[in-house]
């Protein structure tokens, strides 16, 4: 049986995180501290389907990190791509996931962080980029700066619907995982979004977001 991508050999460095679709190890690359993000085969998926998804998302992530950086979004530098292993080698950003910080941020810190979050989301959208996976686990906070990671589900798109899908996921994550702070966080985030995208665009995206929510099962959207 031939070797499947990502299965060949253990990754260099030590495992620091096991996400839903990738293992993250910390090691060195050309003398630099580096993160190795490897999309491991998911054995519940048929190999034919799994291999193509992992390959496609690895390439997509590499491309979109570059495009996001060009749009002025902070993201780790991409050092190398090892497609046969579905692995990306990236700058190690010494930050914490916003998800893990939300509970301990002071009110003013949270307000600032989510406003920045909103501004960055708007900046991506204005540049025609949908992140596709905007959860609080995919935003790293280093000091006051936010770094965006996990671009595997990103896409180039100017469609209102796609941008609204991004905001819907943020909202779903906040309401689902951080219910205590969700409303305040969303208010800050929307304020930041509107300041970057302009009030008119923000209103259109928000209207589209409500329309998506109304499509949800048993949803009552005011």
């Amino acid at each position: 049986m031939s070797t499947r991508p990502g299965e060949a050999e253990p990754l260099p460095g030590t495992l620091i995180y096991r996400g839903a679709e990738a293992d993250i190890t910390l090691g060195t690359w050309q003398g630099l501290g580096a993160v190795f993000k490897s999309r491991k085969p998911l054995r519940y998926r048929l190999p034919a389907l799994d291999d193509s998804i992992r390959r496609q998302r690895t390439v997509r992530e590499a491309e979109m990190i570059e495009q996001a950086k060009r749009a002025g979004i902070r993201a780790p530098f991409l050092y190398a791509m090892d497609l046969p292993r579905a692995t990306l080698v990236m700058e190690y950003v010494r930050g914490d996931r916003l998800r893990d910080l939300v509970g301990s941020l002071r009110t003013d810190e949270a307000e600032d962080a989510f406003e920045r979050f909103g501004r960055s989301a708007a900046r991506m959208h204005t540049a025609g980029i949908m992140h596709g996976d905007l959860t609080t686990a995919n935003v790293l906070m280093k000091g006051k700066d936010l770094f965006f990671i996990d671009f595997g589900l990103s896409a180039r798109t100017d469609r209102l619907e796609d941008h609204a899908v991004d905001l819907r996921l943020i909202k779903e994550t906040l309401v689902g995982a951080h219910p205590g702070v969700a409303q305040a966080a969303l208010d800050s985030l929307f304020r930041g979004y509107a300041s970057e995208a302009g009030t008119q665009r923000f209103r259109s995206v928000l209207r589209q977001l409500k329309s998506i929510e109304r499509r949800g099962r048993y949803a009552r959207v005011e």
Partner: peptide, 19 residues
């Protein structure tokens, strides 16, 4: 079945890793 179930397994895995 293979496609749809893999999709729901993937999003459930995301929720599991997230929470």
């Amino acid at each position: 079945q293979e496609t749809a179930f893999a999709m729901v397994a993937e999003v459930t895995e995301r929720a599991l890793a997230f929470t």
